[in-house]
Amino acid sequence: MSLRKEMNLLLSENRYEELVERALQNPAIIKYLFRPLYHPYGAQRWQAIEALGRVTEAMAQRDPEAVREIIRRLLWSMNDESGSASWSAPEAIGEIIYRNPDLFKDYVAIVINASEEEIFHRGIAWALGRIGRQRPDLVQEFLPLLVEFLRHPRAEVRGYAARALGQIGPPAGEALSKLEELVEDRTVVEVYEGNKIVSYQVNELAKEAIAKINGKPR
């Protein structure tokens, strides 16, 4: 079986522990985790994001610089000069930082600088929530950006921003009034949870965020 087919099989069956073991044995398999990130939708891109997070978490114990090189590759893939943009690179970088915040916290601001490109707004909102869930202090300065995203023309950005503020929790208290403006937004967005894609209305994500910020998880 080729490395690509092996990776696809392990991803499709959520066999992350085996995938990590194989990646540590043969780092060449990691390049195949980048390909799903060029797709804007679908479960496989989320599986690749989680796999990259798990692989780099293990790699960082041996060779942090190798992980930094992966992050640099992801950042480059967001650059127009790379040939084509990797839609899901912000989520992947966010997942890597989430799993090793002390080692890679310096990359938070760097990935947020891509916020000028609208195609990355959804991913940046997700990444801020993911990192903020673990280390609210690392995303505190970017709360105004998430609040701005609550009025984004794309529903998925509004929904992801609301969810992110809920993950950050009480430190995002100043966003409450803006979140309340979304309680009538019934636009449906997709969220990846429990190894599957789940549909939520934006107002559901906003109400959950409000509850969490108020210290009353739903």
Rank of each mutant, 00 (worst) to 15 (best):
Y160G: 00
I131F: 07
R151V: 00
P136L: 02
A92K: 04
L74I: 05
R135A: 11
P153Q: 10
L74F: 09
V20Y: 12
G129R: 01
L19C: 03
P170A: 13
E57A: 14
E95M: 10
Q134G: 01
E57K: 14
P171H: 11
I29N: 05
N195F: 11
W46K: 06
I30L: 13
D185K: 07
I210Q: 13
Q47E: 15
N14F: 15
I29L: 15
V67E: 02
S77Y: 11
D106S: 14
E190I: 13
Q25W: 09
L103S: 04
L128T: 02
R45I: 01
V20I: 15
E193A: 09
F142Q: 01
E13S: 14
P40F: 09
P27R: 06
L146Q: 00
I119E: 12
M7I: 15
V139P: 03
I49F: 01
D80T: 02
A85L: 15
I112C: 11
D137H: 00
E141M: 06
M7S: 06
V191C: 07
V188Y: 08
E204A: 08
H152N: 15
W76V: 00
L138E: 00
P217K: 08
R99Y: 03
E69R: 13
E65S: 10
V55D: 03
L9R: 15
R73N: 12
S84Y: 12
E116Y: 12
A89H: 02
K5R: 15
R62V: 07
R99I: 00
R99D: 02
L176R: 08
M7F: 08
P153T: 06
M1T: 14
Q25Y: 08
A155R: 08
I29P: 01
Q167V: 04
Y38S: 09
I168Q: 05
Q47M: 15
R158F: 11
E204M: 07
G53E: 03
T56A: 12
I197R: 08
Y41C: 02
V189R: 07
R4C: 06
P101Q: 09
R4S: 10
Q61D: 10
G132C: 12
V108K: 03
Y160W: 13
R35K: 13
E117I: 02
E117K: 14
L150T: 00
N14P: 03
I70T: 09
M59V: 04
A209L: 07
E6F: 06
I210A: 11
G83P: 05
V157D: 08
Y32W: 14
V67Y: 05
G173E: 15
I71H: 00
V202T: 05
Q134W: 03
I70S: 01
V20R: 12
D106A: 10
P144N: 04
N14D: 15
G173P: 04
L179M: 09
I93L: 06
N14G: 04
N14V: 10
L75S: 05
V55N: 03
L179E: 06
G159Q: 05
L3V: 04
W87C: 00
V189H: 10
V55T: 02
R154Y: 06
Y160H: 14
E180A: 11
M59H: 01
Q44V: 14
A85C: 12
Y38Q: 06
R186K: 13
E193D: 09
A125H: 01
Y200I: 05
M78D: 00
A162G: 01
L165Y: 06
N214C: 04
Q47N: 05
L205E: 00
G83Q: 05
